[in-house]
Nucleic acid binder design. Sequence first.
DNA 1: CTGTGTCTCGCGGTTTTCGGACATGGCGGC
DNA 2: GCCGCCATGTCCGAAAACCGCGAGACACAG
Lengths: 187, 187
Amino acid sequence: MKKTQPEAFTLDRIVTPVGEVLLVTDADGAVRAFDFTDYEARMMTLLARHYGRVQLTPGRAPEAVRNAIAAYFGGELTALDGLAVKTGGTDFQRAVWAALRTIPAGRTWSYGQLAQAIGKPAAVRAVGLANGANPIGVIVPCHRVVGANGTLTGYAGGLERKRWLLAHEASQVGPDDGTGQGAFALD
Amino acid sequence: MKKTQPEAFTLDRIVTPVGEVLLVTDADGAVRAFDFTDYEARMMTLLARHYGRVQLTPGRAPEAVRNAIAAYFGGELTALDGLAVKTGGTDFQRAVWAALRTIPAGRTWSYGQLAQAIGKPAAVRAVGLANGANPIGVIVPCHRVVGANGTLTGYAGGLERKRWLLAHEASQVGPDDGTGQGAFALD
DNA sequence: CTGTGTCTCGCGGTTTTCGGACATGGCGGC
DNA sequence: GCCGCCATGTCCGAAAACCGCGAGACACAG
């Protein structure tokens, strides 16, 4: 329907401790999507929604990106912070996703805190929605948002992975900083 | 939402016996839109629909195009036949618009005939819609389609102009070829 | 009386669905 | 003849459904 020529992206596959992931980058090296291989269909849907038709050519993502991801999973938790990301989505969604990147590794926020951070304290549930529509998992750390009572509530890649990621980050940072923030239920 | 850079077109204005027209051409010289100045808003809407954001820079269309249009209004009715046109729209719409160009000047088809020509004899009404959504008036001769009983029924540029165009074409071709095709009510 | 569990309800953005309008014409009934 | 009905593709606006929530109400056990 839209006649604009499809955007051309590169599709890479990387093995991580939580399974193989799909990594989509553009010509500038910015990350456009990041998701687990077993949720490929979901990623395609999101890409189509944001960019219309996309043309994915299998290939290698820039080394800088690959290295950062490897470093993160190796324990260098801040390695992802410098990566450039680019997304479609509505203003609201982009605000949510931008706020996500300000949550430091090892910490967690509640959906309510996140809603407050973007200036819409009542849009708690909508924040959950936007969180679930995040096209760039892990790098945009939607897994660092948990229920107000500490339960994990949900994760597009499966709760098992959310649990793993949080444990991975907590173990490198230390068990607790005394503020109560960052606590979450491990089982 | 759409990230693709806007397409750049040239916007020319030409005076004709039926009023000033807007002529949009692309870098290849293909016509992208053609409409009467007093329906500028409609043209913009269609362009936006088909191409997302467009960037129109006032300027002169290729001489070949300008000359063909002048020749047509001067009485050389086939002058427009060779012009290259390019449109967006759905498959159905493009099929309709392509069929329109096969109607010779001086003839008229009914909406039913047109529907039959594209292989969807039942989509009579939809053909009317597609006709009304034609972004390239005159050159893609949507004015050569009339009701089954010869009434003009409608025209995006105003029935007055449809009447004028048909009279203009009929007068050059001859009053009637005896087939009954091409008849239409002049008042 | 405190803590914990379940239940209900309101919240708000996004997506999906639905219905209506329209540049018609052929058919069946009166 | 005149009237009413319906098929057909597309866009648009309205409405509803969907949820990765959270606060408050209540029941119950220690």
